[in-house]
Design a protein around this nucleic acid. Structure first.
Length: 948
DNA sequence: GTTTTCACG
DNA sequence: GACGTACGTGAAAACC
């Protein structure tokens, strides 16, 4: 759903593309979204700054052939004649905003962009009229605004762009917002009214009812016509009674598309700004960061120059720009991507027909493939069928193992082996790009079915293409992306198989129904590729995707296949031990409580502690229930109370037993190994996550926890090798914030927390006492999390005021870290996302929240994400390089097994273990070049606890 | 299905 | 003056 015409380097003449900025709408939004700031004259300029930043960005990244900014001219418009109350009770703009209106008009002049207004008309009407005019002239249009009143204009050739979040608003987004397509938005608005503008609407009808009615009857007029015949209800009476108000509302919300254009289209041609004028104005406003970001002073490299230099160095350092099939793949006509139907699919039942599809794919050089299985675990699932799409709207489904039922005759099906043998050359063909959505799953399924993964070539993954540029902005599921980018809701899996008890295995879904679902998934995947792959370049995410995310798929697939061995007998012994100890503790807990209860129930425990025993120090959660988490219980235990201390101990055992010892035994394969699944597109920072089971949260911090780690073992004659980065996030911080003394400490291999303690508290490092070091360590961790006095105080068990003074001292000593934090907050506010040092975008959606608590939460995310995400980028790079390095070192017995954020766990024959540890250390330490060395510590053992 | 708790980095 | 607080995850159990 990108709004922008394809690459600007394209030499072919383009149809005109008009960018219309809703200046008036932007002013208010920016004013409320941005923190207060003033220019050197003391005039408030936060909205002006936001506006200038947005214009600069627009000119740099999204310039159409034509550009204009539209403003409201006055309060009185044709609407106030129609209905005097329209917008009559709008409060005066805030005092800090008033002086900014004229400055924003100045900004348009400084940037050399036409600013247009016309008395009697709102900016929205001008936008509607210009959009109509450019369409009539054969061009397209992007409206830079997030105003819902403009959404009625979205349609072919017209889309919107949220100026703050930088996200496109197309038909899909409009439909999410209003529940109807753009052309019916006015009908919905007329029914629901708008209290802020005094649009009356029909009382009692809100967004849900309005869209339901319009969807049912088609238009407002049809709804009003049908109203008298509806079944008797309050709603019917309201509709009948307020029909005239609704018709008036429709006139008020409908934008005029035929306003005379004050400036003709041809005068809106985009021009480069006069840099002298612009620089002068920016300096006068005090926008120094913007000035340097636009490269207009000889200041050190700007944020963006820095970023792209890194990304480029990064890509070339890897050295493998392997030509892939997509360079040769032909692009589908843009029109077909959105307009081809989603319901004309073929069921393939013969070898001849399948070969026809495979040949078509190879001729196109591009196809999408999707597998259907009888389960979600790709290591055990059986292949039930697969689908192939060769062009938008052209897709087939190949059923292999559908079972006939009384209701559904399956018809002829290809023999699975026959079909797979026909498919094999396509997968192994490195000149035909195969697009999957979540390729790791399908590749593992096909591998399990007999098409070995390591022979598969030229694969793209739309889930990762999207994640590489929109982590944190939205989910990466196919259905969600389809709605978002294609404006199409695919058939849901649930509607095909049913849900709950009625759910049937996919193999029992009738073949015709399976075809509509499965072929559509391949079709959607291919269309998503057409829409999303080009945006990798414009979003500067191509290197990240090609060098890191895509090659990681095969590495993780191998790790999942390998699994890790567990000692089931030991797990069983631990379960029995934990159970016995819990049983022993129960009598004591009940006697301390005065009665029997369910110890695992926080509700019952809270009532006993705080109602029945009336202990002090209880806190209620937001639902009003007593909190009984370990911090609360520990506090009570420290006061000498017996029951909370006993419950704490019981809880630890219960957790370990249910979540680990029992569960892991169940999850182990017959070969005694457990196979996790790594999720590549879940986290907002770029980290992996692990599920079914989660092997990234195996206990380690307590003695009982260590016993569980001991149950993860190397088989006879083999060893586990652990390699973990030391202080990687702090090193990244010292690097990006450029803190000379911290960099020196890392270069010297000093104890970083002791060094911090020494500098902050002024104690010689050799005299460091453990308590002071502990405080410095807590501050260092706090910094990475976006420190708050409350959080640090709680962590250290000291009052927030005291924590505040530690933080102040810390910042006084390391002002560069405060600067880093401010930069990241500003980056998030300006763009809606922050970048890791390697160019990964992490979206921070709450950054413009009105609620201070939620906004501050987003600010802490903005501070943390580049560090956590930067560390994730580094270890991923190491994982991509490690298999080849091990191979080249002749260490053929080594296998990567697990990644735990800053640790890699490998398994190898005992005699190769030392060499594997050295290779892992070398590759991991060389995965990124910072101003600070990366240090990796390794260990070797028969079990994970020993190796760690 | 949501909430609470707690395991990890 | 109250809010709701350190960042990122996933699983189990209780509870609705």
């Amino acid at each position: 759903m990108t709004c922008w015409p394809e690459p600007m380097t394209d030499p072919t003449p383009q149809a005109p593309h008009l960018v219309l900025v809703d200046g008036s709408g932007f002013i208010f939004r920016a004013f409320h979204a941005l923190p207060p700031m003033t220019n050197p004259d003391g005039v408030p300029v936060n909205a002006v700054y936001g506006f200038a930043t947005m214009l600069a960005r627009l000119l740099r990244e999204h310039a159409g052939t034509h550009l204009a900014v539209l403003f409201d001219a006055s309060r009185l418009t044709f609407r106030s004649e129609l209905y005097p109350q329209y917008k009559a009770h709008r409060p005066e703009p805030p005092e800090d905003l008033r002086p900014q209106f004229s400055l924003i008009r100045e900004a348009t002049q400084a940037f050399g962009v036409p600013g247009i207004e016309l008395p009697g008309w709102e900016a929205d009407d001008l936008i509607a009229s210009y959009a109509t005019a450019i369409r009539a002239a054969g061009g397209t249009c992007t409206i830079v605004s997030s105003d819902k009143d403009l959404m009625q204009l979205v349609g072919p050739g017209v889309c919107m762009l949220d100026p703050i979040r930088q996200t496109p608003i197309g038909p899909a987004e409009v439909e999410v917002k209003f529940g109807v397509p753009p052309e019916k938005v006015v009908d919905v608005q007329a029914l629901m009214g708008d209290p802020t503008d005094n649009v009356p609407g029909v009382p009692g009808i809100g967004p849900k009812t309005a869209s339901a009615l319009v969807n049912e009857f088609g238009t407002l007029e049809a709804v009003l016509d049908a109203a008298p015949d509806m079944k008797k209800s309050k709603r019917r009476d309201m509709l009948v009674e307020h029909a005239q108000a609704a018709r008036l509302s429709l006139q008020l919300v409908t934008l005029a598309r035929d306003v005379p254009l004050p400036v003709p289209l041809e005068e809106l041609v985009t021009r480069d700004p006069d840099l002298t004028i612009l620089a002068e104005w920016l300096s006068r406003m005090g926008f120094r960061s913007l000035l340097s970001r636009m490269g207009m002073t000889p200041q050190p490299a700007s944020v963006h120059a820095h970023r792209s230099a890194r990304a480029t160095a990064h890509a070339s350092a890897n050295g493998l720009p392997t030509p892939t099939a997509q360079d040769t793949a032909t692009s589908a006509p843009a029109q077909a991507i959105s307009s081809a139907p989603y319901d004309k699919y073929e069921t393939v039942r013969t070898a001849h027909d399948l070969q026809k599809w495979i040949t078509a794919a190879q001729e196109a050089g591009l196809c999408a493939v999707d597998t259907e299985t009888d389960g979600l675990d790709p290591l055990n699932a059986r292949l039930v069928g697969f689908s192939i799409a060769t062009a938008p709207g052209q897709a087939c489904y190949v059923p292999l193992r559908h079972a006939g039922t009384l209701e559904a005759h399956t018809g002829e099906q290809l023999e699975p082996d026959t079909a797979l043998n026909l498919l094999r050359p396509l997968l192994e063909d490195d000149t035909t790009l195969k697009v999957f959505h979540n390729a790791k799953f399908d590749l593992l399924v096909l591998d399990h079915a007999g098409l070995a993964m390591d022979h598969t070539r030229a694969v793209d993954d739309t889930m990762l293409i999207s994640y590489s540029q929109s982590a944190g902005l939205h989910g990466q599921g196919m259905d969600e992306l389809s709605a978002l980018h294609l404006g199409h809701d695919p058939i849901s899996y649930d509607s095909v198989t049913g849900t709950g008890r009625a759910r049937i295995p996919f193999a029992q879904v009738p073949v015709e129904k399976a075809t509509t679902y499965a072929a559509e998934d391949a079709d959607v995947t291919l269309r998503l590729w057409h829409v999303l792959h080009p945006t990798l370049r414009t979003n500067q995410a191509l290197a990240l995707y090609e060098q890191i995310e895509r090659p990681l798929v095969a590495v993780l697939a191998d790790m999942e296949k390998a699994g890790i061995a567990v000692d089931r007998a030991e797990l069983a012994r631990l379960s029995a031990d934990f159970e016995a100890r819990m049983k022993d503790m129960e009598a004591g807990i009940f006697s301390a409580a005065g009665r029997e209860f369910n110890i695992a129930s926080p509700k019952q425990l809270g009532e006993i502690l705080f109602d029945e025993m009336a202990l002090k120090g209880g806190k209620r959660g937001k639902a009003g229930a007593w909190s009984t988490d370990s911090a609360v219980l520990q506090e009570l235990a420290d006061q000498g109370h017996d029951l909370p201390a006993r419950v704490l101990e019981w809880r630890q055992l219960s957790k370990l037993k249910s979540t680990y010892t029992d569960a892991l035994s169940r999850q182990a394969s017959s070969a005694g190994r457990v196979h996790t699944s790594f999720q590549m597109a879940i986290t907002t920072t770029g980290r992996l996550s692990s599920t079914d089971p989660n092997l990234q949260n195996i206990p380690v911090r307590t003695e009982e926890g260590t016993r569980i780690r001991q149950a993860f073992i190397a088989p006879e004659g083999r060893r586990l090798i652990s390699a973990d980065y030391s202080q990687i996030e702090l090193r990244l911080l010292a690097d990006v914030a450029n803190i000379p003394t911290l960099r020196e400490a890392f270069h010297m291999g000093q104890d970083i927390h002791a060094r911090t303690a020494s500098e902050v508290f002024g104690i010689p490092i050799e005299d460091m006492d453990p308590l002071t070091r502990r405080r410095a360590k807590a501050i260092n961790f706090g910094i990475i999390y976006g420190i708050s006095a409350f959080g640090l105080g709680r962590q250290l068990g000291i009052p927030a005021g005291e924590a505040r003074s530690y933080i102040d001292t810390y910042f006084a000593r390391y002002p560069g870290i405060r600067d880093y934090m401010e930069r990241k907050k500003e980056e998030a506010q300006t763009y809606g996302y922050v970048l890791t040092p390697f160019g990964r975008r992490c979206y921070v959606p709450g950054i413009a929240e009105k609620s201070a608590a939620r906004r501050q939460y987003a600010e802490r995310q903005a501070i943390n994400a580049p560090l956590q995400g930067g560390a994730a980028d580094i270890i991923k790079q190491a994982m991509v390089r490690l298999p080849r390095a091990l191979h080249e070192a002749g260490l053929h017995s080594a296998r990567l097994l697990l990644q735990v954020h800053d640790e890699l766990l490998l398994e190898a024959d005992a005699h190769e273990a030392e060499a594997v540890a050295r290779t892992a250390k070398n590759v991991m330490e060389a995965a990124a070049t910072l101003s600070i060395p990366l240090v990796v510590e390794t260990g070797i053992g028969q079990n994970w606890a020993q190796a760690h």
